[in-house]
Write a protein that binds this DNA or RNA. Structure first.
Lengths: 153, 153
DNA sequence: CGACTTGATGTCACGTGATGACATCAACAT
DNA sequence: ATGTTGATGTCATCACGTGACATCAAGTCG
């Protein structure tokens, strides 16, 4: 992240990242499949958190309410790293390879939420639609949040 | 496409593609920014067609009806190349880099449709929502169409 | 204690993707 | 005949990503 912010994603080589971390490029590729993936390290955790929150919603909750619980979990997780989130987002926005990766991560997240809803007994296509709607809300809200003036959490 | 189908996307080098076309790898990269982009050559045309159809819908048409017109245009364009569409889709499905590229193309298409709706006087967020809904329909319908037994157009 | 695994890292070599600089050549206009 | 323009080729170069093998530290067991 430091290097990506300093000089931009494309201008940063994997060798430089590895050096900054006190490692070798080869080792970098043992931890991250890609030069891109290092920016999405946390997205797996976020997805797990959200799926767990969705599964933990009360049985009485509607599909959209369960999705809402997942979004709350995401908000409380991201809320602790607002500066980081903002920087990360502007790095991603500046490069199309990174935007592509982000899209596929969001698609994976939507699929995971839909699967979680089906586990709750929600039938298709309702499960997928609720999941997609939740991701749409997430995108819009996240975008507003990181571009917002200093204020709220 | 021939080579991607024969031996898979990753196993095909740009040099081979260029050779098959009677050219040089250097020339390939003058026409396509990427090894991936060659599979998405037509998506720009498709997008233009759809935007034109959307713009050409009668003033009386609702936003969703205008989007429907765009989808009809896409259907008649793709309907003429069903085998090609099917092969292309299975190549894309088999490789995650290609799936990423496809997602960003669809996102671009959604943005173009939303913009077209705004030009028709549709306010946000209705324009974006209608566009996203149209793309969702497109994805599902296209998926079913290419995986369908030999029958319909 | 010494030998033996195991996991993380480094080193090296290599193929491939992608780009810049320059040369070539055909088509065409004047 | 000359010069221009556009498309292509050639060459050099860099960075990404991976396989093969070496090394070294931490632990395990006889």
């Amino acid at each position: 992240m430091e290097l990506y912010v300093e000089r931009g994603y494309e201008q940063t080589t994997v060798a430089e990242i590895a050096e900054r971390a006190g490692l070798t490029a080869r080792t970098f590729f043992r931890y991250f499949t890609d030069k891109r993936e290092v920016l999405f390290e946390g997205s797996g955790q976020l997805q797990d958190m959200m799926v767990t929150a969705l599964a933990g919603a009360p049985d009485s909750a509607s599909p959209m309410q369960a999705v809402g619980a997942a979004l709350d979990a995401a908000a409380s997780m991201l809320g602790q790293h607002r500066d980081f989130s903002g920087q990360r987002q502007s790095v991603i926005a500046a490069n199309s390879e990174l935007r592509e990766r982000e899209l596929i991560k969001l698609a994976s997240l939507a699929a995971a939420l839909a699967s979680g809803l089906r586990d709750r007994g929600v039938a298709e296509p309702r499960a997928s639609l609720a999941a997609e709607a939740g991701i749409a809300v997430f995108r819009v809200a996240f975008e507003r949040w990181v571009s917002e003036p200093d204020s709220a959490g």
